[in-house]
Write a protein that binds this DNA or RNA. Structure first.
Lengths: 361, 361
DNA sequence: TTGAAAGCGATACCAG
DNA sequence: CTGGTATCGCTTTCAA
């Protein structure tokens, strides 16, 4: 009989308090959350047996009648295993943590997001998005680490620091992967190099004879991690051409801001503009037209993202189409790294870009 | 001395296997994840003391030197508490689970989403989004229940069933709340009644003299939970007017589909159309104009969502603007229900609607 | 002020 | 084929 609890009184009190705590919101009064012990009791077997049956343990053979009794009991009680207890005991979980990006990003990215979730689930991971709004870098990493995920797929937007990566690794994360424009020392990276977008746009515009190129930089602070490299990409492409000039243009996502920018268009003397993306392009297009600037006659205009809506404008909007690899592939990469964490950090370039010429350039 | 472990050999082996498992991906070779026991050892105190110090336990007074030693040790080891172990011991967590909606929804909704996250974090909850793509109803609910969240904020799109609610409640969720167009028996509801949107649009159009009203119903299956009630709302408003007629119009989100619809516009004989939302409205507008239909002369056109882009069209798009309450308020509601789970399910109507007339009606 | 120890729920070993 | 039991990491009561 091993040992005897010395003063179990307070224990029991605590448990009792929990077990007949206030009934849940709906349905009949609830007294407690059933555990595997409750199932065992009801089925007249031991907890071990319950565990075997419910997990379809292959190495142990349980008689069919027993299995049925256990299952029936679990069903009757509405038993649901306790994930925390399980992973505590197991020493690891199959949780993939995907901290949500600080800024809501475009449809392409979120499409990849859901594909990825799907694919990871098929590989038997539990995908959990963690809203880390309003935490800064290392705090966020610590918060993620508390959940002991087996893998972390963080936005590559500068939130995660090398120290954060270290904390996560030490907390048992087998794979730390960033997904976005920046990479982080020590972590694997799925790099979506936004400079390529700028470069692609610039090359298209330069190729069509423009030399004074405006580049819209959204005023909204959240877009900095995207807009800065896009601008840099334009600059890089322009450097190859001594006659080219690049002019950054602040633009807020509102009509007023666009009207102001269009108002001083003549003095800017631009013959082309890369508008960050299709939405800003649409905003700017209307303002330019209202100001009497002909597109593409006076100024060529280019967006990015290849939104359906951009295709509907007059003139139809030229754009940079981006292509991301399938979530399937990324999920496989994560899985591979989880299974063999020893490898050196991998860096994959993901973003395919392609200029789509329509009527605005 | 209570009891003596009888055959600890295999135990130790198992632990050892884990503790010097393959080194983590980055940084120096890792041997193990530090636990509070490691911190205690390094600081030369007991685990209890570590816990007291790290949780700033008010009821116990620990000497300042000890506190410092403990903190230093935790820091040096990169100790991060194990959330699962903690909540297992505590018997409850402060996790609010927000299953991500099956379909990516509009900016308004996702804005509310992040506000809500923010507000909940301020109330000291841990917000976790759970991708439940590709699970159906009760499976999803069981998966959520495994995490033992204190509250579940599920999309009110029909995924959650009354049985699901029951499972969650039994698993200890103090608050089960749906957020969306439908409510569920037994759960609290933050109801965004989409019929109001349709009604608002219809009243606006009827008020301006239209009687034959087309209603765009997106072909994309994910929008059904929104489009059906919007259509119903239009019908409800039209019933008050014996001369009014309502015609549902299938429309896929692609140009081809819009061109086809516009092609048979004359024979439809509509003098107004509610286009589901601004995006479908923009799609349809272009096609109508290309087909020689004058908007609003021949047909009035109305969207919903009040997107900036809709304002940029010619004619500027009339729309239904929706207003949602602040995330702050919803978070407080969740918090209130968590603290006092006994109350009957509450149903709150959230959606404020308002017709915004511009140039297309 | 600190330490010893019980126990949250689930699992997997070994013995019976 | 089934049961007893130690263990995961952490918190908290009681005793020293």
């Amino acid at each position: 009989m091993g040992h005897i609890p010395e003063q179990p009184a307070h224990r029991d009190a605590e448990r009792a308090r929990r077990r007949d705590s206030p009934p849940g919101p709906p349905g009949p009064a609830r007294v407690s959350t059933p555990t595997s012990a409750d199932v065992a009791r009801l089925a007249g077997v031991s907890r071990a047996t319950v565990s075997y049956v419910l997990n379809n343990a292959g190495s142990v053979r349980i008689s069919e009648p027993t299995r049925r009794r256990v299952r029936a009991a679990a069903d009757e009680l509405g038993y649901v295993p306790h994930a925390a207890a399980r992973s505590l005991r197991a020493g690891h979980s199959r949780m993939v943590l995907m901290p949500a990006p600080a800024m809501p990003v475009g449809g392409l990215y979120s499409h990849l997001f859901s594909e990825l979730q799907w694919a990871l689930r098929r590989l038997d991971y539990t995908v959990v998005q963690f809203g880390s709004l309003g935490m800064s870098g290392d705090d966020a990493a610590r918060a993620w680490a508390e959940l002991r995920p087996v893998a972390v797929l963080a936005p590559g937007d500068g939130t995660l620091t090398p120290r954060g990566v270290h904390v996560l690794a030490r907390s048992g994360a087998k794979a730390v992967v960033t997904l976005g424009p920046q990479r982080v020392e020590g972590a694997h990276a799925l790099l979506m190099d936004q400079r390529a977008v700028g470069r692609c746009a610039a090359e298209h515009l330069l190729g069509r004879g423009s030399t004074r190129i405006g580049v819209v930089v959204p005023s909204e602070p959240g877009y900095r991690t995207f807009s800065a490299p896009r601008l840099a990409g334009v600059r890089a492409a322009a450097e190859a051409r001594p006659d080219a000039r690049v002019v950054p243009l602040d633009l807020g996502y509102d009509e007023q801001s666009a009207v102001e920018l269009a108002g001083r268009w003549r003095e800017l003397g631009l013959d082309a503009v890369f508008a960050y993306n299709d939405e800003y392009a649409m905003l700017l297009l209307r303002a330019l037209q209202d100001a009497g600037v002909d597109v593409p006659g006076d100024t060529a205009l280019m967006g990015a993202d290849d939104l359906l809506l951009g295709r509907l404008l007059r003139p139809r909007l030229s754009t940079v189409r981006m292509e991301l690899p399938s979530g399937q592939r990324l999920a496989e990469l994560v899985d591979r790294v989880v299974r063999d964490p020893a490898g050196a950090p991998e860096v994959h370039r993901l973003l395919g870009v392609e200029a789509v010429r329509r009527e605005s350039t």
